[in-house]
């Protein structure tokens, strides 16, 4: 038989099998349909609209009808006076959040794991997860109560000690620390869950053997718990690096103000102000795409690295 015909027959056969398989799972596909439609409409259609990053978007002409301008909006952004500052702020805040956020989470996980008081452990878990569920608007309210120069608790304390009050939220010296530490306050408990899980999955026999060998509790932590956390730690760090350009839009959007723009303005807040407040839709979309692209590259690379070093990965 002619090999080409044989191949095409096999192909038709393969196609038929495939169709039959698909038909067999028709109910599952039907179940999947609404979700797929959602992603198509609300996630892929915007990607199509994102072409206005390369166009001079004119609402009257629509997305498709607006004239192309190439990379002009990208050039405008890179040559903008504030480009360097935005990138620096974004990276500084992001890196500080990783560096200062992970150690307390590990510490908390170890403490929760090691304590022999179950009640304390329970209540600390319940309470420390809670801030994760507060919105940044609410946390802003809490921060106002703590930090306001005229009414805040901390400044009341400073004044009682005869010190000058510090305008934490409006001083260029303190704004970034406030952003980072408020994130640490909000998320430490929640991030500890992952580490706690890793600790719980360590074989208890290891601890028992070590105890019999006369290892102190501290030595057990150092030689059993900490190494047991390494995989998760590498994974968490790498994935955070993947999203390093997300320095926390919602947080900074509610916290920042004119006096601290120079240290608080990040790419996302700039995009919001240009796009929504100054009606430069194409420019904002271009910067959004730029950020998305860098993020995509970083996260793919990070994921590769995570898989290589730990064998586990996000996807």
């Amino acid at each position: 038989m002619n090999p080409a015909i044989a191949k095409s027959l096999a192909g038709r056969d393969g196609l038929a099998t495939l169709l039959r398989r698909i038909w067999r799972y028709r109910l599952l596909y039907l179940m999947l349909l609404p979700g797929l439609l959602y992603f198509l409409i609300f996630r892929y259609w915007p990607l199509w609209n994102a072409q206005i990053a390369f166009k001079d978007f004119q609402p009257m002409l629509g997305v498709w009808g607006s004239p192309w301008v190439g990379l002009q909006h990208f050039q405008d952004f890179f040559s903008s006076y504030y480009f360097g500052q935005l990138l620096a702020n974004t990276l500084i805040i992001s890196v500080a959040k990783i560096a200062l956020g992970i150690p307390p989470a590990i510490l908390l996980a170890i403490a929760l794991h090691e304590t022999s008081r179950r009640f304390l452990s329970r209540i600390v878990q319940t309470m420390s997860y809670l801030p994760h569920f507060l919105s940044w608007v609410i946390v802003y309210g809490i921060l106002l109560a703590m930090l306001s120069p005229s009414e805040g608790l901390i400044n009341h304390g400073l004044r009682a000690l005869g010190l000058e009050p510090i305008p934490f939220l409006t001083s260029t010296a303190t704004f970034q620390p406030v952003v980072v530490l408020s994130e640490v306050w909000k998320e430490t408990g929640w991030s500890a869950i992952l580490f706690l899980a890793a600790l719980l999955s360590i074989n208890p026999a290891l601890y028992e053997a070590a105890a019999i060998d006369g290892a102190s509790r501290w030595q057990q932590v150092r030689h059993i718990s900490l190494p047991g956390l390494m995989d998760v730690l590498v994974l968490v760090v790498l994935l955070k690096i993947g999203s390093i350009l997300d320095a926390g839009f919602h947080q900074i959007f509610v916290l920042y103000s004119l006096p601290v723009y120079s240290v608080g303005d990040i790419i996302d807040t700039w995009v919001y102000r240009q796009g929504i407040q100054n009606f430069q839709f194409s420019l904002a979309t271009a910067v959004g795409l730029f950020k998305g692209l860098i993020g995509l590259v970083l996260i793919v690379v990070a994921n590769r690295l995570a898989r290589r070093f730990t064998g586990s990965s996000l996807y």
Binding site: P46, A284, G295
Partner: peptide, 14 residues
């Protein structure tokens, strides 16, 4: 779509 987001304005237009 989790890794790559089109952004605010394209979504608004949808």
């Amino acid at each position: 779509t989790f890794l790559f987001n089109a952004g605010l304005i394209p979504t608004f237009l949808v």
